[in-house]
Design a binder for these strands. Structure first.
Lengths: 225, 225
DNA sequence: GTCTATAACGCGATAGAC
DNA sequence: GTCTATCGCGTTATAGAC
């Protein structure tokens, strides 16, 4: 069964993966399931998500998801790590691109910052990535997820401090903008874009340069419960 | 049974309310339960929280919580509204205080901003307030909670724009700092404060002026699952 | 590598007494 | 205003076949 078979209401829609019917390697399946997990955890949160919905979105059976990852908790940890690694990889690529192709109009730091901000927004193409990260950050009280999320958050902080070379204040500002972007995506403010002038203004203020792209990629009114 | 009876591990600790044994007015009970709900929803999230734990934290029976609020969903909406109203009330008080008692060292806008930021941090005394708000903001896909959270977010935005008089860029920066503060509280970064120099630095950078107060109020290692 | 069947449990909500 | 008892469903995880 492909994920398209449940594209109707109530389900988190995930990019269709061609269902060739053939058995995949354990590794291919893991990637497929991780993608589905990001979408489902992102839309419903850790507790709200079910392994069954992840399984259906990935086109496998529920027990098989548990089998491959051991437990729902482990699946979330894997999804979190995946999201974080993708994010930092994108940041590093943006930083390298800024160094390789400097903008004569901007200072080095400004140019890198702009590219990194764009890279973060562009990650909306990975469905549920921002929201899963944000959900993890909110579970600091969880005995297993809490420490893992703190370590992940620290990885991002170190990127800004050590790799990008910002001071504490600059790094904090980047983190803050990132949290706001994640919040706006999780809130699905895009659903109200255009209907309320205040909200429209807020949205434009958050995504100044990438607005057309964001409006195009962020699906409105889907991912509903 | 007072909430102290379950102060042990696994439970969200809530300030003890004197258990006089007498029956309270429906209104008093509602307030008591709302306080418990903020703590539990904040620590566990909407789905992770149980009406039973809210009930135990408030010292009443589980069915009674459902009875008073109709449903868990309604309870969350009430808690969200309570959190938002408290927040905006605190912001308005801070703004008024800044106008009544101007700081000769700072511009009017700077002084008000500083006070409002402090007021937001000071709300950590209301256990779970920041986290419940943040959880609400992440549930944009929920058919009922999503729209309510968007309206709430817009209320805060309008405060900065209309009441405080900021431009879109300034308002966005305040919102961003607020999201970062909420995230740090939800992450319970305070748990690692002092153990990791990078984390300590990050934490100090977020709570520059109120650090002693924050460290004092934010309980470490409690609210565990 | 993947499924079906199912066990075991936790949760929200209702009924009804006091 | 508040409780106890309980129903019924949804969920994770396990067993075991193919």
């Amino acid at each position: 069964m492909t994920s398209a078979a449940l594209g109707g209401d109530g389900a988190v829609a995930v990019d269709e993966t061609p269902d060739t019917g053939r058995r995949l390697s354990s590794d291919e399946r893991r990637r497929q399931i991780l993608q589905a997990a990001l979408a489902v955890f992102g839309a419903r949160g850790y507790e709200g998500a079910t392994t069954d919905e992840v399984a259906r979105a990935a086109g496998v059976s529920q027990p098989y998801v548990v089998r491959l990852f051991g437990s729902k908790e482990n699946l979330f940890l894997a999804a979190l790590d995946d999201a974080l690694t993708r994010t930092l990889t994108a940041f590093r690529a943006a930083l390298a691109a800024a160094a390789a192709d400097p903008d004569p109009e901007l200072s080095e730091a400004k140019a890198a910052g702009k590219r990194i901000g764009q890279a973060f927004v562009d990650l909306i193409e990975v469905r549920g990535l921002h929201q899963t990260l944000a959900h993890g950050y909110l579970l600091g009280s969880h005995p297993v997820i809490g420490p893992a999320s703190r370590r992940g958050f620290a990885r991002v902080w170190r990127f800004f401090r050590d790799e990008m070379g910002l001071d504490a204040d600059g790094a904090r500002m980047f983190m803050a903008e990132g949290m706001l972007i994640s919040t706006m995506i999780g809130l699905r403010i895009v659903d109200d874009y255009g209907s309320d002038p205040q909200i429209t203004e807020l949205f434009r203020s958050c995504f100044p340069t990438e607005l057309p792209h964001v409006l195009d990629v962020l699906p409105r009114g889907t991912d509903r419960w």
